[in-house]
Each structure stands twice: as structure tokens, then as C-alpha cells.
Design a protein around this nucleic acid. Structure first.
Length: 580
RNA sequence: GCGCCUGUGGCUCAAUGGAUAAAGCACGAGAUUCCGGAUCUCGGGAUUGGAGGUUCGAAUCCUCUCAGGCGCGCCA
């Protein structure tokens, strides 16, 4: 579709040159809705100013000028796909594609089953995307759920554009949070027995125990000096693995957490290619920092090693603490170095909460100094934080909404409302509702979350789209026996307004996907899909499909809409049930 | 105090500097002899936090200001 746009732009430039008005940043763009044509140009307005700047004012208003330009364009543009060129106040020129061309696009929508949305022309890139990043020994909360939904969708969007994508997950298996959790466990008089008993229970029970231990340890760390120093000592022991008893407890807890996370990923439909652990990359980071002290990139400050971010307009950050342990910063250096050892990517994308945006700028500045080839390929995307309408979420307060709890509550609500729905469909719809609710917002923005109100099953929601898809399948299944009709002509039909609006929406799907991928913005897909589904449902309500004069065309239309919804939902990481 | 981000109907939010600021929820009124009512139609409700400025044109860019969030040396 880009070629049409290019053609219009070129034609406008020629006309302007002919009129002696050069140097116009004139433009052919998509109008906001579908009411101002398929393409529009503001050339009348843009050129009017240049004209008044010149010697003579030949045209009194921008609209006069637009009309003159439009007349020339009608003679110049021979493209049969463009049916009408109209002017509109205060000085726009609108271009309309022909109905036959639009109808022909339906076949395209059906043809591109796998790569619908892919333009096919972008070069095949190798991209590693890191997301989710939960920490063993802590809860998998709705923030992780959001990171996962956004990350998975971005991966699929990039894949739709022909890139090879590797999914990476970075997990904090060492550090103060681990020490705090283990400290709490060690406080239990006969903790070994407790562990053995837990071993027989479900994985959910076991992680719940760890989460509670962390909350207890975190509280004690701040309220009790003795606990604080005990935890600091424990942190050291965990890091250098010097105490066998602690090692065994640590390994157990770590394994439980990781096993649990896998159950969540499987529910959400993510499969990671690479797992990274702080315990491993920390050592690499420590080494990288150590090698760059003499050259002045890092400097000793007391017992710690810091990076003076002020030199680059940021602030100082500690990379190695006074105990000689790498902080998150140094670990991150090691992580990013390791990624490129594992996979020769053209680009490395890191998706995290935006609370660390500032910190990441400092990190990038440091990375740029010690390994510029890695830094130049790395891009950080900070997504908005998920906030509860009721107040701040915190492990210590115990008001953390875990990802699992959210999914289960939505599922329970669905079960109440649709008692006949089977288990598999309940799961698909629940996951769809949750993911859609998270993804329909712009990625950088904070999400105000209300457990009762945020997950909608009607209106602009995941289930609405799934329902619409199921509806298209239902219609098509009723005419399976008369398949030949679908192939009937799509030329010279008399189309109803609802059909035309649908056509004007459908053919924009590929470029919408491209835009969403380019901007790392799943919400662009959400917006498009809801618009499409609304138009289809309106069409469905007003026009008869089966048994109508244009049955063949309408079935084709229905099938195209279904295909696009299914593909679009896939790009959001959401499944489309055939029935619901 | 300094830095980054965000302020759009009651709520949640959309809008590459362009046309009447787009929707959903909630609220009010309607639609089923017919393909799935998780649907559809109509209605009320917004001086885009405030004040200046740039521009033919500003929710969008600039300045100031108010409000909120996050970050600012050994958590991640």
C-alpha cells in the first residue's frame, strides 16, 4: 500500500514544481478515521503559505489552491486503484480507493495466513528480547504478568515482520531478597522438617511459603539491627557458596521458584530460549568492572566501586558494593555482555518497569564506555507500572496481587457467568481478558488496576474480540456444504455502507501491524482490532449474510474478518476459541 | 532541592502539528418471526490541570506555573 502513497506524493511534488512552488514538506498521510478518504494531503494549506511568501497571490484561499492542485492531479494520476480525488475545506485533498480494489484485498487477507501483517520487505534481523524477569524467592505479581504480556506481544510483532526473535528471561537468584527469605526460613526451629513436608505439597503451596518468608525477612531487616547484620552475612555466604547447609536450602528454594514460574509461562503461552541468572552474570560483571578501574571509567570510592554518571549528565551509581559484591548495575553489564556471546543479535531489547529508566541511562553510559558495540545494539523499553486503585502494592504489606490469583479470579468470574463453558475455553478467555486489559494501554504509561473493574468481558475487551471471532466461525460453519459460493465474484457488487467501512478497515491491517512492531506498541493492534470487530458486528446486525444476494462476497468478508482477528489476537499473545 | 515521566467527560483511556477531540465502562432510552444479545442503535456528559508564546492550524512544540508518580551511592 505504500506504493500508492508514494505515487500520490510524487504526483503532488510534480504539480507543485509545475506551479513554481518548490520546497514543500507536502505530505500524503492517512486520515484519522475513514471519513476523509483513504489518503489525504494538506497540500492546499502547506502551499498557501509559500504562495503568499512569493510575488503574487494567485489563489485567494487554501481551498482555491487545493482545487487547482486537485484538477492537475486528476489528470496526472493514472492509477486505477484511485477512484476519486476530492477537496475539502479548509484546504485538504482526499483520495479514495476504488471499491473493486478494496474488495480484492479480502483475498490478500486470507492468503497471508501465517505472516499476516508482514510487509515481507524488511530485512531479516536477529533480535533478543528480555522480559518478565521475576525473582526466585519472591512472588510473580501482576507487574511481571504485564511485562510478560507486553514482551511476548512485542516478540510476536517483531516476528511478524520477518525477524528471528529469541526470548530471554533474567532472574535474580542471588542478592538481598534471597538472603532475606532464607534468613526467615532459618528462624524456624525445625525448618528442615518443614521443608520436607512442603516437598510433598503442590508447587503453589511451596512458593507461597517462600513469599511469606521473604516478607518476614524484609520486615526484620528494617526493624531489627541483629537481623540486618545476619542477613548481610547470609548474603555473602549465598554468593560464595561457602556453607553447605545454606547451599542446599538455597538450591531447593531456587528450584521451587523456577518450577513455579514455568507453570505460569505455560499458561501465558511464552517459551523462553535463554535463561539468565544473576548468580552467573554477576561474576562476569565484577570482572568487567575490575578491568576498567585503571583506565578511569570506574573509580574506587571508599570500599565500593562507582561510576561517575555526572560526567554524562546523570548521577553516580555504585557498581560494586563495599563488601566486594556486584550490585544490580555490574550484574547488568555482565548480562548484556553474555547475551551477545550466546546469540549474534543485531539488536537487543530489554523490557522492564519504567521505575528503572533513570538508572538505565547511567548503565547505558557506562556500557557505552566499556563495550560500545554492545551498548549501541541495546535498547531499553520501560513499561508503565501496574498500580492498584486501592493503594501501593508491597510484599511487606501482603497486598500483592499475584499473576496467578488474577487469572484465577477472572476465570472464576467467567465460570459463574457462563456455567456451561468448558475448562479449556474458560482458561483461554480468562487469559485473553487479562492480557487485553493490560495491553490496550500505551506501553510507557502507568496502569491503574482495579481487580473488580479493570478486567472487562464486554465492550473494548479481549472476550469481545474472541466472541466476534467465534461468531464468524459460527456463520461459516453453517455454509460449509456450499463452499463454492465463497468463490463467487467480487467484481461490480453493490455494496452497503457497512461493507464498505469494513473493507476500508481490513486492508489497513498489514501496515497497522508494521507500525505496531516499529513502535513496540501492542496497543495499536488492540485499537485496530476493536474498531474492526465493531464494524463487523454492526454489519452483522444490519445485513443478512447467509441467503443474501451477495452471499458469496459476504462470506468472504466474514472469513477475512475472522482471519484478521485471529492473527491480531495471536500478535497480542491471545488465543481464539472456535466456540465460546 | 535536582532529574525523568504523567495530567484529556464520573471512571479507564485514544489521537505521525491538521478536518466535528476517538472510544469503552457507568448512566438514560430502545432493538430479537432471521446467521451467537459476551451483540447492536440512540442520548446526555470534555473551555484537553492553569497562564502565556510559536504556527495558516496546538491535546500535541516552547516558557512559566499547579498537581501526581518515579529516581537521585552501596535493594533490584
Amino acid at each position: 500500500m505504500l506504493d500508492i502513497r508514494r505515487e500520490i506524493t510524487a504526483a503532488i511534488k510534480e504539480v507543485m514544481a509545475g506551479m513554481g512552488i518548490g520546497d514543500i514538506d507536502a505530505v500524503c498521510q492517512r486520515p484519522k478515521g475513514i471519513f476523509h478518504g483513504d489518503y489525504t494531503s494538506n497540500i492546499g494549506l502547506a502551499a498557501f503559505r509559500k504562495q503568499t511568501g512569493g510575488k503574487k497571490q494567485e489563489y485567494k484561499t487554501p481551498l482555491d489552491l487545493a482545487e487547482k492542485i486537485a484538477r492537475d492531479l486528476r489528470l496526472r494520476i493514472k492509477d486505477l486503484r484511485i477512484e476519486r480525488i476530492e477537496t475539502a475545506a479548509p484546504g485538504f485533498i482526499n483520495f479514495w480507493l476504488s471499491e473493486d480494489f478494496l474488495a480484492g484485498q479480502l483475498r490478500e487477507a486470507i492468503k497471508n495466513k501465517k505472516r499476516a501483517g508482514g510487509s515481507g520487505k524488511s530485512k531479516k534481523e536477529k533480535i533478543m528480547v528480555e522480559f518478565t524477569d521475576p525473582n526466585p524467592f519472591k512472588e510473580f505479581h501482576i507487574g511481571h504478568l504485564y511485562s510478560n504480556a507486553a514482551g511476548e506481544s512485542i516478540c510476536r510483532l517483531l516476528e511478524s515482520q520477518g525477524s528471528e526473535v529469541k526470548r530471554a528471561c533474567y532472574q535474580g537468584d542471588v542478592g538481598m531478597h534471597v538472603a532475606k527469605a532464607l534468613y526467615a526460613v532459618l528462624q524456624i526451629t525445625n525448618y528442615k522438617l518443614q521443608i520436607t513436608n512442603l516437598e510433598k505439597k503442590e508447587i503453589g503451596e511451596r512458593v507461597k511459603f517462600l513469599g511469606e518468608a521473604y516478607a518476614y525477612g524484609a520486615r526484620d531487616y528494617e526493624e531489627n539491627e541483629a537481623a540486618k547484620s545476619a542477613i548481610n552475612g547470609l548474603n555473602r555466604k549465598i554468593y560464595d557458596k561457602s556453607d553447605p547447609e545454606i547451599n542446599s536450602l538455597y538450591e531447593k528454594g531456587r528450584a521451587w521458584s523456577l518450577e513455579y514460574f514455568e507453570t505460569i509461562y505455560s499458561r501465558l503461552g511464552t517459551k523462553f530460549d535463554y535463561y539468565y541468572f544473576e548468580s552467573r552474570v554477576g561474576k562476569i560483571g565484577l570482572d568487567l568492572v575490575g578491568k576498567n578501574i585503571e583506565n578511569g571509567i570506574f573509580e574506587q570510592s571508599g570500599e565500593a566501586v562507582v561510576f561517575r554518571g555526572e560526567k554524562y549528565g546523570f548521577h553516580t551509581r555504585v557498581f560494586v558494593n563495599s563488601q566486594g559484591l556486584p550490585t544490580y548495575e555490574a550484574k547488568e553489564l555482565g548480562l548484556n555482555w553474555q547475551k551477545f556471546q550466546d546469540y549474534p543479535a543485531n539488536a537487543s531489547v530489554i523490557i522492564t518497569g519504567n521505575e528503572i529508566n533513570e538508572y538505565f541511562k547511567v548503565l547505558m553510559a557506562a556500557m557505552d564506555r566499556i563495550m560500545p558495540e554492545v551498548a549501541s545494539k541495546t535498547r531499553h523499553i520501560g513499561h508503565g507500572m501496574v498500580r492498584l486503585a486501592t493503594g501501593k502494592m508491597s510484599s511487606r504489606k501482603g497486598n500483592v496481587v499475584t499473576g496467578e490469583r488474577l487469572l484465577d479470579e477472572v476465570k472464576a468470574c467467567l465460570r459463574r457467568e457462563y456455567p456451561k463453558m468448558d475448562e479449556k475455553t474458560l482458561e483461554i478467555v480468562a487469559v485473553g481478558a487479562v492480557k487485553y486489559a493490560l495491553l490496550k494501554n500505551g506501553i510507557g504509561l502507568e496502569i491503574i488496576f482495579n481487580l473488580d473493574a479493570s478486567i472487562s468481558l464486554e465492550g473494548d475487551s479481549g472476550p469481545y474480540l474472541q466472541y466476534t471471532y467465534a461468531r464468524t466461525r459460527s456463520v461459516l460453519s453453517k455454509v460449509k456444504s456450499q463452499k463454492s459460493k465463497v468463490k463467487s465474484t467480487i467484481q461490480n457488487l453493490k455494496l452497503e455502507m457497512e461493507e464498505l467501512d469494513l473493507l476500508r478497515t481490513i486492508y489497513r491491517f498489514p501496515e497497522t501491524v508494521e507500525e505496531a512492531a516499529k513502535n513496540f506498541s501492542p496497543n495499536i493492534i488492540c485499537f485496530f482490532m476493536f474498531d474492526l470487530a465493531q464494524r463487523f458486528n454492526l454489519f452483522y446486525q444490519r445485513q443478512r449474510i447467509i441467503g443474501s444476494e451477495n452471499e458469496g462476497f459476504r462470506l468472504l468478508l466474514t472469513e477475512s474478518v475472522g482471519r484478521i482477528i485471529k492473527t491480531g489476537l495471536y500478535l497480542l499473545g491471545i488465543e481464539s476459541p472456535e466456540k465460546m
